[in-house]
Amino acid sequence: MATPGNEPLTALLTLTTGAAGAVLAFLLGFPAPALTGPALACTILCVAGVPLHVPHILRNVCFVVIGMSMGTGVTPEVYETARQWPLSFLFLALSVCVIFAAGTVTLRRLWRQDRQTALLSSVPGHLSYILGLSTDTRGDIASISVIQSTRVLALTLIVPFAVSMMGYDTTQMGLPGAKMALIPLAVSLLLAMCIGLILHRLRIPAALLLGGMIFSTVTHLSGLVVGHVPLWAAIPAFAIMGTMIGSRFSGVAFKTLVRAFGAGFAITLIAFLVTIIFAVLLIQVVDLPLPQVLIAFAPGGVESMAAMAVILGADPSFVAAHHVWRLVILTFLAPLVLGRTKKSGP
């Protein structure tokens, strides 16, 4: 891991790697290149043993900018489809439970993991919360961290390619229409950051992202602010998000990576297949586009899926609402199941 003495150089290397990955992914025609390119490039360096780190201030600003980008896409027309969301929430809850159960069984039987490690590795989301729970158990924290990070990385890469195969243009970045002026953008960023920090103090998941989205949604619907977040601000935020996803593997022993990567991809495959099944079932009964439901149901990181919604043109409020709902489910479900596991033994 980076030490305080070399942290500025590590940050510079990290951001340079992310930027290079974004440019290369764009030139190669990758879907959502600003997100997938940095994630892949930084992962490769981390696996090779190079320590990477994104400064916290950049991470926080990135979350707020992505939240603001989502808020600018919320229009009055969005609420016309909101009456279909309760059924969608139900399908999402069912898919979360299926992923949770199937992943645990797979890791127990094929990877011979102990019950607590398998359980915590299989939780489809809420990474920081799950790692916090891991410290109170006998689970293998290193394996849990790698498996969960692999899920986030793999879904960040898989979902854009899946949406691209459905015939959607996934190489475009940003939203059409007018752009926010510099002063309204700066003021909005500052006030949205304040709201996000308040939500963070209240222990609300994805607080900075939600702070940006809440402020942007209210000001745009009221007419106080008009226009989308300009590309010069949005694209670096997406790239930093991808860079953070890849840098999760920094400092992890190569032996641990090798052992846990296979389990991580197995969990990802289960999650993606279950997501597709429930998304396809849902669109049979409600009038919603499959790519949008896929992004909303895919159990990747909240912030990365939110960024993907903006990049791929999905309804941002729909995607955000579903990922927050997933976190709410897991907040109560994981400790409940873990408590039973502690009582029943390994």
Rank of each mutant, 00 (worst) to 15 (best):
43 T>R: 05
43 T>E: 06
48 A>T: 10
65 V>H: 01
73 G>Q: 15
50 V>Q: 13
60 N>F: 04
64 V>M: 01
50 V>M: 11
74 V>H: 12
71 G>L: 12
50 V>S: 14
63 F>R: 04
57 I>E: 09
66 I>L: 09
56 H>F: 06
47 V>D: 10
73 G>T: 14
75 T>K: 11
66 I>W: 00
52 L>E: 09
58 L>K: 00
56 H>C: 01
58 L>T: 00
59 R>N: 06
44 I>W: 07
43 T>G: 11
71 G>R: 14
52 L>H: 03
66 I>R: 00
50 V>R: 14
46 C>G: 11
60 N>R: 14
45 L>V: 04
67 G>I: 02
56 H>D: 10
68 M>F: 01
63 F>H: 12
65 V>P: 00
59 R>V: 03
75 T>D: 08
58 L>V: 06
67 G>M: 02
50 V>D: 12
53 H>K: 10
49 G>N: 15
45 L>Q: 03
73 G>N: 15
49 G>R: 15
69 S>V: 03
51 P>E: 07
46 C>M: 11
53 H>C: 05
59 R>D: 07
70 M>S: 13
71 G>H: 15
57 I>A: 13
69 S>F: 02
71 G>T: 10
72 T>A: 12
71 G>K: 12
55 P>V: 06
74 V>A: 14
43 T>K: 06
62 C>K: 07
75 T>S: 10
61 V>Y: 06
47 V>Q: 13
56 H>L: 13
70 M>E: 02
46 C>S: 15
62 C>D: 12
54 V>Q: 02
49 G>W: 13
69 S>Q: 04
59 R>P: 04
70 M>P: 01
73 G>I: 11
63 F>S: 10
66 I>V: 12
73 G>F: 11
64 V>K: 01
52 L>S: 09
54 V>L: 03
53 H>W: 01
61 V>A: 15
75 T>W: 04
67 G>T: 01
62 C>E: 13
69 S>W: 01
70 M>A: 14
50 V>H: 15
66 I>Q: 05
65 V>Q: 00
42 C>K: 04
66 I>F: 04
50 V>I: 13
63 F>N: 08
42 C>V: 11
51 P>Y: 08
42 C>M: 08
57 I>S: 06
46 C>A: 15
45 L>K: 05
68 M>L: 05
56 H>N: 12
46 C>D: 08
60 N>M: 10
66 I>G: 02
65 V>K: 02
43 T>V: 09
74 V>E: 14
49 G>T: 15
57 I>D: 03
61 V>C: 12
